[in-house]
Design a protein around this nucleic acid. Sequence first.
RNA 1: GCCGCCUUGGCUCAGCUGGUAGAGCGGCUGAUUCGUAAUCAGCAGAUCGUCAGUUCAAAUCUGACAGGCGGCUCCA
Length: 648
Amino acid sequence: MDVRVEGQMVDAPAEADLAAVLRKALSGKKFKTVVAARAVTGGESLLLDLSASLPDDCHELIPVYADSPEGLQLIRHSTAHVLAAAVKRLFPAARVTIGPAIDNGFYYDFDVERPFSSEDFPAIEAEMQKIAAAREPFTREVLPRAEAEARFRGMGETYKAEIIEGIDADTVSLYTCGDFTDLCRGPHVPHTGFAASAKLLSVAGAYWRGDEKNPMLSRIYGTAFADDKALAAYLRQMEEAKRRDHRKLGRELHLFTFQEDVAPGMVFWLPKGMLVRAILEDFWRKEHLKRGYDMVQGPQLLRVETWQRSGHYDHYRENMYFTQIEDDAYGIKPMNCIAHMLIYKNELRSYRDLPQRYFELGVVHRHEKSGVLHGLLRVRQFTQDDAHILCAPDQLEGEILDVIHLIRDLMNLFGFQYKVAISTRPESSIGTDEAWELATGALIQAVEKAGLPYEINEGDGAFYGPKIDVRLLDCIGREWQCSTIQVDFTLPDRFDLNYVGQDGERHRPVMVHRAIMGSLERFIGVLIEQYAGALPVWLAPEQARLLTVTEAGDEAVLKLRDELKAQGIRVALDTRNEKLGFKVREAQLAKVPYILVVGEKEVQAGGANVRLRNGDNLGLKSGGEIAALIRADAEEPFKQGGMRYSFA
RNA sequence: GCCGCCUUGGCUCAGCUGGUAGAGCGGCUGAUUCGUAAUCAGCAGAUCGUCAGUUCAAAUCUGACAGGCGGCUCCA
């Protein structure tokens, strides 16, 4: 039969394996880098081992190369097997569990008496190298389920046996490389030689099947590439990413600090960081006013009875801080919604008043478990750009759409890549089926109307309603939730919110909880990493720094400073008795966008020599020109989007 | 909260198998007036996270606690 391979037709004998077919079409050099192949039959293509025999109705074979994304995933998955094989040789008592490929690498979880530490890596890596050098073939066998289960039980591999119990099929496949056999769906690379460019990265505890109630396993993370060069490049890139870490940059740029012994998980904003925050807040308040929100502010402490009524006391107590004042118990707010509802309830509302959109930069406290704190990205006290929209049911979709547009505009302003997910009804939840259906439908319709790609997270919604979540990435690719939109039919009920409809009857409003930046702390943290500390000019705490060459420039520089300040430019002076190179270096490391040098020439001509933080030199410019330049630069990001910000 | 690792001056880090601490940057003082990523010199600054224990002797060993880092779980 004839099979197409990369454009050429190959005659494939019956019962040929994929490797034999590919070898006919590809040069020897090329063939060596093939790790698997996709067999195209009819409309679909199946990823198969090279040792698999050619499916009957296959008319095309697509080779999967080692350095392709799919090939890398296979290499990493196979390398996880090699890791497990090495561990079993060195620690025969270890029981294996699962070991998948993940983004940028793989992991394998083991049940061991003594958890692994990174000190075990050299020995394990050496053993892996030995296995790789032996180029052991990965061989596949298919067994009836019961037989496979018995075999793993016989080996004492109880976790594997447990996995097989859960598999809904008559047969399962096993893969063997050297002396190690693992339950695995496959496919795998042809031999262990493809696991040669691997490195173990870290150890971690992980619960069996991700459940806190299950035993803690010892997980080893690693990564693997097609060759050593690619591996080295990746490791260098990771080093580079660490330089963007907002915790490091926050310290170096004097933006914020933590005093762990005084207030763990709570930020001390330093003057420069607070200035960034203040600008961001100012912009954001104005944007909300433009979009029809009203600013409100509720109290920080509410009496405990209120939290009991809202359900927070039952469902959220472990995350709350409480305090006792005289004879009364108070809870510090972990959310802003209750106060906003009480503000709504302060007056009798008509359908004509809807929607009511209450906006608050609300400071909330949540007692997060100690192990989860992470710089600005996970804290215990944070400020939400929170709003609660109370509307009639038929206004719901339009309101959600407006919120999505606001999210889109903000993300575009900063050039963030983001992921959207819709979370549906969880098992333990309250409310009627109709309400859930209506709310979920409204969310999906709105997201589709806005043209955003999204995924569905089944059963991941809040207990009172479904939600849209938007996640941003930090510098090493971890996802952090920022925006969230939640539809809530329950709390308006619990607090007996009403509006008088056209019919003169009382009706229940729907509440949309939404935050766009999510938490200002987290958002600024991601922002710092996104820009590697070099914030856009409109947010830069110090937009320009004037440097003198000698003290002969002192007088001129003061005049220039005042001129720029009068134009609303945030400008600082460096008239220290240091060499120019030293001052330029410090300004550049401080990521000041405009470095303005005043020496003898500039004193004569008036103005300053303009250097940008990327090293470009724009030459001599007058004070007026410089101010115009900086303002134009500050306004640049706002040109495309639907937003404006006036620089007063 | 759970698992592993870590915790030495403001920052980054040395300190080997136990004999009561070092450097660079930064700070201060002085000299230098020097044109686009580091001018030179001097000085100050740490009971080595906390509390116990082992020891003649602990930054170094043991334990508990606190905090941090990487994960798990959770979440904005």
